[in-house]
Design a protein around this nucleic acid. Sequence first.
DNA 1: AATCTAATTTGATATGTATCGAATTAGATT
DNA 2: AATCTAATTCGATACATATCAAATTAGATT
Lengths: 185, 185
Amino acid sequence: MSEELIAFFKALSDANRLKIIGLLAQQPYSVEELAVLLDLKASTVSHHLSKLSQIGLVSARADSYYNVYQLDEKVLEAKSRNIFSQENLAASVVDVDAGAYDNKMIKDYTRKDGSLKTIPAQRKKLEAILRYVVKAFEVNKRYSEKKVNEILSRYHEDTASLRRELVGFGLMKREGGGGDYWRES
Amino acid sequence: MSEELIAFFKALSDANRLKIIGLLAQQPYSVEELAVLLDLKASTVSHHLSKLSQIGLVSARADSYYNVYQLDEKVLEAKSRNIFSQENLAASVVDVDAGAYDNKMIKDYTRKDGSLKTIPAQRKKLEAILRYVVKAFEVNKRYSEKKVNEILSRYHEDTASLRRELVGFGLMKREGGGGDYWRES
DNA sequence: AATCTAATTTGATATGTATCGAATTAGATT
DNA sequence: AATCTAATTCGATACATATCAAATTAGATT
């Protein structure tokens, strides 16, 4: 999931961890050596290495007293190639509620009975409300202007504005000059 | 410098900012819309967008009341291609003191007069100390074993061990069976 | 000009985390 | 087996930051 991606970026968003990566790109080092080179305590370096190994960037090899860490260049290349891949971009959005905006507008602008308190002045909000209102019409069925007004009056007294905006935003179509209205798919 | 790289990773190491990038990869959104979609306050989203625009990933375009943000895909691709480039790896290491380890070992193992308290048992430490000791010899000049021992005695009474280790680690060379010693470049 | 509205900035808070020192563990050397 | 040594883990602390609410700003609509 996206947790992995976040862990990856978090692991790399620290100056000392970037230095560790840069050093290990030159040659393997033990924890103690890294601690001296970075002027940190071994426990701190151990903590950093643990984060880097969690994302698979480094691994350890025991050598006598020492735990020698090395950079896994293959992982490095693989990661950098697909960080912003389509999958990753899509994955980060997967749990976003796509209808949240329309739902909030409906919540903000309607009463319990479904009628509109006001007609939004802002375009984006108006559009969301119109998407809500247009559901009162069946798809592909033809309505006379009188019938359209009757249905729209359940939402707001200014049926003329609603009707005009529905057509303006392309949510409903009108035939020729004064013909019928219908809702397309 | 490396500050830029850290800012880049920090900007991306947050779940909501990744979601914003994912959403903007589909289409531009206003701050308010993003706030609703992510279930955050507008001020928080503004804060996130500010971080993303600092690294050049997003930019804003004014549209009526709204500030519509869009993803700069070119920057996205460019960044992902050279994140772990040689320059970036080298840049993160630029202010690391390469001699810090040897210096610490010298500090730990020598007295004020430069002589050794003990000869380190650990290989890496021994190597650092030997790199220090070998500086007492001129490069490419030939020394008799007797002369070598005399010089080494300034560092430690166990001249035989020092001499053997210097040769063992390749810091000094010896000709044939019992010939002279010399330090190579 | 006066009034809206969205966006940003600011201040406060709560959570996260880099760092250290101390204690413990794992493992090699003697 | 006993003793070192490096590495790791744990607990505490200080600094960073994600979030919200309130105040301010910028800009468009009327």
